[in-house]
Lab assay of single mutants.
Amino acid sequence: QLNAMAHQIQEMFPQVPYHLVLQDLQLTRSVEITTDNILEGRIQVP
């Protein structure tokens, strides 16, 4: 299920590496919260 959620987020934010999306999802278990984390700059994109 997390993989499906990660792919959904990757479609919206292809610039964010998959492993970072998955790592955040493991903590949040939420597409909405992880999306917010990306938008708020809480996930550092190399």
Rank of each mutant, 00 (worst) to 15 (best):
M12Q: 10
N37S: 03
D24V: 03
Q26S: 08
P14Y: 02
L25E: 01
Q10F: 13
E32I: 10
L2D: 03
F13L: 03
H19S: 08
Q44L: 12
P14D: 03
F13S: 01
M12P: 02
R29Y: 10
L2C: 12
I43P: 01
L39E: 05
P17M: 04
Q10E: 05
D24H: 01
T28V: 02
Q8A: 13
A4W: 12
Q1V: 12
D36T: 15
A6C: 07
Q1G: 12
H7T: 11
L22K: 03
V21K: 00
P14V: 03
E40M: 15
Q26Y: 13
Q26E: 13
A4I: 12
R29C: 14
N3I: 15
N37D: 01
Q10A: 13
T34A: 01
Q44S: 13
Y18W: 11
E11A: 14
I38F: 05
Q15G: 12
Q15R: 09
E32H: 08
N37C: 03
L20N: 05
Q1W: 15
D36P: 01
H19P: 12
Y18N: 12
H7L: 13
T34V: 02
T35H: 06
P17D: 13
G41M: 06
M12E: 06
R29D: 07
L27H: 10
N37G: 04
T35Q: 07
L39D: 02
V31H: 05
A4M: 11
S30C: 07
P17L: 05
E32L: 10
D24I: 06
S30V: 02
Q10Y: 13
Q1D: 15
F13V: 02
V45E: 08
M12S: 07
R42F: 06
Q8G: 06
Q15V: 05
E32M: 09
P46Q: 10
E32C: 10
F13K: 02
L22M: 09
F13H: 06
D36H: 15
Q8T: 09
G41S: 05
L27T: 11
I33C: 08
S30Q: 03
M5Y: 08
A6M: 06
I9A: 00
E32F: 07
E40Q: 15
R29G: 14
A4K: 12
G41K: 06
D36K: 15
H19D: 15
I33W: 07
Q26G: 07
Q10I: 14
H19G: 07
P17W: 04
P14N: 04
Y18M: 15
T35Y: 07
A4P: 04
Q8P: 02
M5Q: 07
I43A: 02
V45I: 13
D24M: 06
I43E: 02
I38A: 02
T35F: 07
Q10W: 15
R29V: 06
H19T: 07
P17G: 04
E40K: 15
T35R: 14
L39P: 00
M12C: 09
E11N: 11
E40I: 08
F13P: 00
Q1C: 14
S30P: 01
H7D: 10
I38R: 00
H7P: 01
L25S: 01
Q8C: 11
T28N: 03
P46V: 11
E32G: 08
V21Q: 01
H7M: 13
A6K: 01
I38L: 07
E11I: 14
Q1T: 13
E11R: 15
P17Y: 03
M12V: 07
N3V: 15
I43M: 08
P17F: 04
T28K: 00
Q44T: 11
G41V: 03
I33G: 07
G41D: 05
D24S: 04
M12Y: 07
D24N: 05
T35M: 14
Y18T: 13
V16H: 04
I9N: 00
R42P: 01
V31D: 02
V31G: 05
I9Y: 00
L25R: 00
N3K: 14
R42C: 06
H19K: 06
E40A: 15
A6T: 05
L27W: 09
H7F: 09
V21D: 03
G41P: 01
I43R: 02
N3Q: 14
I9R: 00
H19Q: 09
Y18L: 15
L22R: 02
T28D: 02
N3G: 11
T34G: 01
Q15P: 01
F13M: 03
L25F: 02
I38Q: 00
P46G: 11
H7R: 15
N3H: 15
T28P: 02
H19R: 05
D36W: 13
L39S: 06
T28H: 05
D24P: 05
V16Q: 03
Q10S: 12
S30F: 02
E11L: 14
P17E: 08
L2H: 04
T34D: 01
N3W: 12
I9D: 00
Q23K: 09
F13Q: 01
T35E: 04
E32S: 11
V16A: 05
Q1P: 11
H7N: 10
L39V: 09
